[in-house]
Design a protein around this nucleic acid. Structure first.
Length: 624
RNA sequence: GACCUCGUAGCUCAGCUGGAUAGAGCAACUGCCUUCUAAGCAGUAGGUCACAGGUUCGAAUCCUGUCGGGGUCGCCA
């Protein structure tokens, strides 16, 4: 039992002894703030009504009972309603002796799927994807360490109009270019043609769009013509800038969708769905290039997947669920044949689940895929790592599955993370302000190399080892930077300043680890028995305290889907050990018992650092 | 317009299931390498926790409102 539990147990017993029962009291303690004397604090204010005494008197009598029944506590003090316990110095050596950095949280016998990355195959990955990928991977690792069986899944959006855009542009303007001939990474090559398409579309429709915005545009399709006129009329009345730009955008899209280029693109999608062999062939070969590119980036980031889903296989799923929903009366059909769900009683709107022509929308597929995931993998929980702009979508999806009576519905969870901003504002692929994932990784690598060479501490290391070092350093810096902020919050990434190797960073923690390993190497220490009647330095006691918090932090991070908690912890531990490092000498210690104790602390700390870093995808090095 | 979300030091972020004098890192300034790796440690300076009310013994934390940033409300995914 760890020390916090011991104190809580002692407190509960004391409360029961003094005031009858502790059942209705939430007994929790916190670490005493450094400015006060003590290790752990209990706040007695909630108990004063029960005791009928002043906060001071209540704390005093409680403290006396706990002191008597808990040998690990050496003394206590009372300040106002705060009861501060001091742990007996002799306890810490024992705690270190019984501490096992390798021990695991018991398995929970619960299977969780974590879906992350889920890219489109028409563009290369960028910084936004990186946040998603790092979060997903880390959450999966944390949950696994937290006792869950985890399936990492990737649902690839490999079909649809956006894919056809790249295909059509390549067909028309590509001159047979391929990754080999161009030297471009597959996903970048396909992305290039996506941009070509957008540019050509803009060129070819510029005049028409301009005319349309002045009211001089017409379309043979009555439906479209009507929508255009509506929009144009509204534009004339609109006053707010936001509304005006939205309406202009609507009109632009309307016009562009009628262009030859877009019509051909639509036709291509229809041919794809009809399994036209030429289209399918082009599609497979271009997607192949993209997968090759993605896999390269995934590998470089050090992430992997256990299950792959492809939308080309799943896009028809969910239609039977639409039928089921109609039969159950959960959905209803409108006159045009479209199918909806009315969620107004849940504070939401009506939501379309199938188009009038019987084709699927996004959520139709997601309903089908939800069933598929639970059936295929026998999971208890399904976690979706997806940006917060889709909050509404998942709210609706989960509500629908619950209304359809899916027993798994309570196990669906959306890890909703914020966008990554640049100093210039939001990343926009159209304006070329995205930070490309591969470019970023390369820059990081170069920076890590330059920084390391500048410090000049790596003499005698082989090129191979050095390459691995630069790689790990750069990834540590990037991963730590991204994962240390609360996933829910939007974050700012400044390419010039964000990636540091000093301070609260991944390399800082790696450095702490490497220094410890250096000591252990020199001492040729691999663990031993230690005596428990030693006098520890205050920094050592503090460090052991932090070591003991690991499992609590891990369990919390798993329940909250929060890698940032691990980052924060790993920083605490590294800082705490660095203080020990500066305060006490190990190799020069002549007292063998003390020396062994310190080596043991070093060993345990290094193991926890390594374990914790792995949870956020950071690999350690022996030297740096 | 409706709903969701964020606002903490010059900058990037912790703290938010209510507890004491709000913490780190970066940037600035001062010390510490003949002593286990100075990618480190110790220190100085820097705050109306957006604003206004409320609940409470106690509010950065909970509630309401205002202001500001972002998002969603597509037969896009």
């Amino acid at each position: 039992m760890n020390i916090e539990d011991l104190i809580i147990k002692g407190l509960s017993a004391a409360i029961e002894q003094l005031y009858g029962t502790s059942a209705d009291v939430d007994v929790k303690i916190e670490k005493t703030k450094p400015i006060f004397e003590g290790d752990y604090t209990f706040v007695v204010f909630p108990l004063v009504r029960r005791s009928g005494k002043s906060p001071e008197a209540t704390a005093q009598e409680l403290g006396e009972v706990v002191l008597n029944n808990t040998p690990e506590i050496s003394k206590f003090n009372v300040i106002k309603g705060f009861l501060n316990f001091s742990i007996a110095p002799s306890y810490w050596a024992e705690a270190l002796l019984s501490f096992d950095a390798q021990s695991n949280i018991p398995r929970k016998n619960e299977k969780v799927m974590v879906e992350y990355s889920s890219p489109n195959t028409n563009k290369p990955l960028h910084l936004g994807h990186i946040r998603n990928i790092l979060l997903g991977y880390s959450i999966a690792e944390i949950m696994n360490a937290g006792g869950y069986d985890v399936v990492k899944a990737n649902l690839i959006n490999d079909r649809g109009i956006h894919i056809c855009k790249s295909m059509l542009a390549w067909q028309r303007f590509g001159n047979g270019e391929n990754p080999q001939s161009s030297g471009l990474k597959g996903d970048h090559l396909v992305g290039k043609y996506y941009v070509v398409f957008e540019n050509k579309l803009q060129e070819q429709t510029a005049d028409e769009v301009a005319a349309a915005l002045e009211g001089r545009w017409s379309c043979e399709n009555e439906n479209i013509q009507k929508r255009y006129q509506d929009a144009f009329e509204k534009l004339g009345q609109a006053k707010e800038e936001k509304q005006i730009s939205k309406l202009k955008g609507d009109i632009k899209d309307l016009v562009r969708n009628q262009s030859e280029l877009m019509q051909t693109c639509q036709e291509m999608l229809r041919q794809w769905e009809a399994k036209d062999s030429a289209v399918i062939e082009l599609w497979s070969s271009m997607n192949g290039w993209v997968y090759e590119g993605f896999n390269h980036t995934y590998k470089r980031l050090g992430v992997d997947f256990d299950a792959m889903y492809y939308e080309s296989n799943t896009y028809l799923l969910g239609k039977d669920i639409v039928q089921e929903g109609l039969e159950k009366g959960v959905f209803f059909q409108k006159a045009d044949g479209s199918v909806w769900i009315d969620l107004s009683s849940d504070g939401l709107d009506e939501k379309l689940v199938q188009r009038g022509d019987g084709t699927s929308v996004y959520i139709t597929q997601d309903m089908g895929t939800a069933d598929l995931k639970f059936e295929e993998h026998g999971i208890n929980r399904s976690v979706y790592v997806v940006g917060n702009e889709q909050d509404y979508h998942f709210k609706v999806l989960f509500l629908i599955m619950s209304k359809l009576g899916r027993s798994y519905a309570p196990g669906m969870y959306h890890v909703s993370y914020g966008m990554v901003d640049l100093p210039s504002g939001k990343m926009k692929s159209r304006e070329g302000t995205v930070v490309d994932a591969d470019d970023l990784l390369q820059e990081m690598y170069d920076t890590a190399k330059a920084k390391t060479e500048e410090l000049g501490k790596t003499e005698g290391l082989s090129d191979e080892v050095l390459h691995e070092l630069y790689n790990r350093l750069s990834l540590a810096a990037l991963k730590f930077f991204i994962l240390k902020v609360d996933p829910k919050k939007r974050m700012l990434f400044n390419p010039e300043e964000s990636i540091d190797f000093q301070g609260d960073t991944g390399p800082f923690v790696m450095y702490t680890y490497a220094r410890i390993k250096s000591i252990l190497r020199n001492a040729q220490f691999e663990g031993c028995q230690i005596k428990t009647d030693l006098v520890l330095h205050a920094t050592e006691m503090e460090c052991i305290k932090v070591l003991n918090e690991f499992k609590t932090v891990l369990a919390g991070a798993a329940e909250e889907y929060n890698p940032a908690a691990i980052c924060q912890y790993v920083l605490d531990l590294a800082k705490s050990y660095n203080k020990v490092y500066n305060e006490v000498s190990i190799l020069k210690e002549s007292n063998e018992d003390l020396r062994n104790m310190r080596l043991q602390l070093a060993l345990q700390t290094s193991q926890i650092l390594q374990r914790a870093l792995r949870l956020i995808g950071v690999e350690t090095v022996e030297r740096m």
